[in-house]
């Protein structure tokens, strides 16, 4: 082992990889970093994927929803109440209201239109929302404190790890299981799955399909809002944060398969691992890696790891 580390350090000239090999607790921390980053991204990406799966709309404004979630947490938690969890709840609630307005007022008219029309409309919403955010919150970069109970770190035996990050690692899978139970085990969930299969037949059977659509759009948007709210303590709410996150989310949902919850889950973990180990081992290529995974998946399995090929009964 020692000779291997020496080889990596001196012959390959890769101090990052050598540090990973020689320091197990460092390697472990990067694993935890991968998971906590992945779980935050998963919550947001799952909303995007869910909306696409049922509504067949690629919602570019999803990143703006995330940004609103972060800003709402800032206002409610930092400015008004001092309670972080109240802020996250308000972010979810706020996004639910926004989702109803946007879905009923705009998106319901474009479900039958071609994809280009849908893209243009959701992109218009991005531009409008970023200006609205600027009018409400201005252009400052804000900082949101960690919830009081999660400011510190926990001793994991091998190393200390921030409590809040551990909380994210737990909350991600909990949301994944919740979403899975919801779509598989509830009546509403069964109806949403039916709506993705054949919504005309569902409508002929007397089911109110528009309500299902609105419901799914709310759920997906609330996930973006909560994801943004949970990210606020380590991602300063600031103009432009919507553009960064939407790219990451697209990579994740395309790798995982559009419309698949578990696909987004695995996609997010792959993203987290590649980003965190990639930035240590090949730091100069950190920007390229997410897109390399994307490229590889698109070449081998264009419909994503957990997706279904188009043209079945979509």
């Amino acid at each position: 082992m020692d000779s291997l580390i020496q080889f990596v350090q001196q012959d390959l000239g890769n101090p990052g990889l050598a540090a990973l090999l020689s320091n197990p607790s460092f390697a472990f921390i990067q694993l935890m970093n991968s998971f906590s980053q992945a779980m935050n991204l998963f919550i947001i990406a799952a909303g995007l994927s869910l909306i696409f799966g049922v509504l067949r709309v690629i919602n570019f404004a999803h990143g703006a929803f995330y940004m609103f979630g972060a800003y709402i947490v800032y206002s409610v938690a930092q400015e008004w109440t001092g309670n972080f969890w109240l802020g996250v709840a308000a972010a979810g609630l706020g996004l639910a209201v926004m989702a109803v307005v946007i879905e009923r007022g705009l998106f319901q008219y474009i479900y039958d239109k071609e994809h280009l029309m849908q893209l243009l409309l959701t992109f218009a919403v991005v531009l409008i929302l970023s200006d609205v955010a600027k009018i409400i919150w201005g252009t400052d970069q804000y900082s949101v404190s960690y919830p009081a109970s999660m400011k510190g770190a926990v001793d994991l035996g091998v190393t200390f790890y921030p409590t809040y990050r551990l909380f994210l690692i737990v909350v991600g899978p909990a949301i994944a299981i919740g979403l899975w139970l919801f779509t598989e085990r509830t009546r509403f969930g069964r109806l949403t799955r039916a709506a993705t299969q054949d919504r005309e037949m569902l409508s002929a059977l007397g089911v109110n399909v528009p309500i299902i659509y609105t419901g799914v759009f709310i759920l997906g948007s609330v996930l973006a809002g909560i994801g943004g709210g949970l990210a606020a303590p380590f991602n300063s709410p600031t103009p432009g944060m919507d553009a960064t996150i939407i790219v990451d989310c697209f990579v994740i949902v395309i790798v995982g398969g559009l419309g698949s919850i578990w696909g987004s889950f695995i996609g997010a973990i792959i993203y987290g691992l590649v980003f965190n180990y990639g930035s240590v081992i090949v730091p100069n290529w950190q920007d390229v890696f997410p897109f390399l995974i994307l490229l590889a998946v698109l070449l081998v399995r264009p419909w994503g790891l957990f997706g279904k090929p188009e043209g079945g009964n979509a």
């Binding site: 970093n33 432009g240 980003f275 950190q286």
Partner: peptide, 17 residues
């Protein structure tokens, strides 16, 4: 020596290094 991309939001990988 660490280099982070402009606009980066996640620094954990660098902080642990």
């Amino acid at each position: 020596d660490l280099r982070v991309k402009l606009g980066a939001t996640d620094y954990n990988a660098f902080i642990s290094q």
